[in-house]
């Protein structure tokens, strides 16, 4: 009966207990990524920026009726999704690559994906810089609602960790799950309102997209930054609950597989 509450309490307890490891690991990650200081940062921003430019140029004509300042519209949707996708993909090999540690020290193994999820958040925060740049360039009004972005980060982190844990588990047992995950994420990319907005969907479908936590998260982000309005509280709370559920499922799957890892590494 107390199984699931225990999982959650342990999870947050371990974040606290292993805070020193997480801190170090995040710092190491960032250092590795941004090693050539300024250039490192520029490169990592250039990729989404170029991608966005291409998409914006291609789609702004087709989707003209969707939204004005399509680049900003697009960017808002892409940021949360690319955090989700790149973190989950990054977590794919984390258990394997930390096999040497797992073999020697008895640690809760999800701290490895967890540290990636955290360093990803720093990237996520940094990628707001080009977004603001684009907004200034297009003369889009920046509203105080952007201050509420941290409220969206919380459920985003939950969803991402939940999925990342499952993805990490899958890769321990099978080496080729990467291809499968890539396909699923590609599909998910189009199932999320990144290129389009919800009101472009047929009416019957609009009701159901709420089931996809990522869908709402992207909309929240867009609400805050693009539309300069706060998301509906009720929808937000439902989404928070749903995201938490995804994390719980991830933790449960991870726990089930946890004991078998040693035999597969």
């Amino acid at each position: 009966m107390f199984y699931f509450p225990r999982l959650i309490i342990d999870f947050f307890g371990n974040i606290f207990r292993y805070r020193e490891y997480l801190k170090q690991s995040v710092a190491r990650d960032l250092r590795r990524r941004y090693k050539r200081s300024v250039l490192g940062y520029v490169w990592s921003m250039l990729n989404p920026l170029l991608m966005m430019t291409v998409l914006a140029v291609v789609f702004s004509n087709i989707m003209q009726r969707t939204a004005e300042d399509y680049a900003v519209f697009l960017f808002c949707g892409m940021l949360p999704f690319s955090y989700f996708a790149s973190t989950s993909m990054g977590c794919l090999g984390t258990i394997r690559s930390n096999a040497k540690i797992i073999d020697q020290v008895a640690v809760p193994k999800y701290i490895f994906p967890l540290s990636l999820g955290m360093s990803g958040l720093v990237d996520f925060a940094l990628s707001f810089v080009p977004l603001l740049g684009v907004m200034l360039a297009t003369g889009r009004h920046i509203d105080v609602t952007v201050l509420a972005i941290p409220l969206v980060i919380l459920p985003l982190f939950f969803v991402t960790m939940g999925v990342a844990l499952i993805v990490a588990v899958s890769n321990v047992f099978f080496e080729d799950t990467q291809h499968l995950v890539e396909v699923v994420f590609k599909a998910l990319y189009f199932l999320c309102p990144i290129l389009y907005s919800r009101d472009l969907l047929p009416l019957w479908l609009q009701k159901w997209v709420v089931l996809n936590p990522l869908f709402c998260l992207i909309e929240f982000m867009r609400d805050l930054v693009y539309h300069a309005r706060l998301p509906d509280l009720e929808v937000y709370l439902i989404n928070l609950g749903g995201s938490f559920l995804v994390l719980l499922i991830g933790l449960w799957v991870f726990k089930q597989a946890d004991k078998k890892f040693v035999y597969f590494l």
């Binding site: 292993y18 801190k23 073999d103 020290v105 640690v107």
Partner: peptide, 25 residues
């Protein structure tokens, strides 16, 4: 138990001392 287990080969000795210590909370 194993040579080099609990360490990261890419890191130097000092970094590894930090890594290993942090894994032991």
């Amino acid at each position: 138990i194993q040579l080099g287990a609990g360490f990261d080969g890419e890191l130097n000795a000092i970094e590894n001392i930090y890594l290993n210590g942090s894994l032991h909370k």
